[in-house]
Amino acid sequence: MNLIPKFDPVRVFLEPWSTPELISWNSQVILMGLLVCWASGMIGSFIVVRRMALMGDAISHGILPGVIIAFLAFGSLDVGPMLLGACLAGLACSFSIEWLQQNSPIKKDASMAIVFTSFFALGVTLINLQTGHLDLDTDCVLYGEIGLTPLAPNITLAGNNVGNRSLWVMGLICLIIVSLICLFYRQILVTSFDATLAHSIGLPVKSIQQFLMLLLALSTVASLESVGVILVVAMLVFPSVTASFFFSRLPSILVCTFPLGIAYTFGGFHLAYWLDCSIAAAMAITATVCFIAALGLCPNSFLWKIVAHKKSPHN
């Protein structure tokens, strides 16, 4: 009945990797975590620069009605329709936010809050209307369970078993995101930092914005299954904010996403193993710990300022 179990290094760090079955299971979980962290972290760096950190939150709530409607329309829990429905709803959400902002006196933050809560309310109502014949687990959508990744069915390609479906979907999306960002790096960079300049040199600012929202929706939807609605925000915001304590240039921050993703995944995995709790939540807690550490240790942190202040009290 104790809340925090005793910390046993052998059990926490070695037991998950002790038998071949456990290794194959856990490595899939870890791989999924890495993919989610990297995909969200890359997008998140641009989102944070644009001061839209909570857009991920908005979109991840907004996709709920899309998921439910896709389920009602196709009658199955297949990945394809779900992903489609969720993406459409996510895009609809971001379009409505944009529209409301431009065509009414409502400010950006309020229009975000109005749109995503309305979408979410619609989704919850739909779920409730369909109780009885809908076995969609709301808990799963809200919290996500990355530990169940290996349970996804395997894909067979030309008779060969090529592995876990969730992993392939997420890997593909991660690849798409990373390669698109590499390809259009300059365009996205200019529009993120100086939309006016971008417009004056002839870049399609609005379509780039929508394209980024599409990528955000895609990565959010794909990681939803594993980390859940709310922790997507953590994976979007934490890597770039943590890295920005040490680096001021965007390329370094983007590169930093990769080691930070590894740290979050492994840290979260073992933390969850120790505390016996949700892995996704543990990953977000690890990210928080990393953030606090970076906050304290970065070159011009407030801790140093306090120390310096105490040394010269009459200053």
Partner: peptide, 19 residues
Amino acid sequence: HQDSSLGIVLSAFYAIGIC
């Protein structure tokens, strides 16, 4: 920025809560 700090507090607290 304010939006990032809101995101940080939101996800950190919520993660602890879910844990």
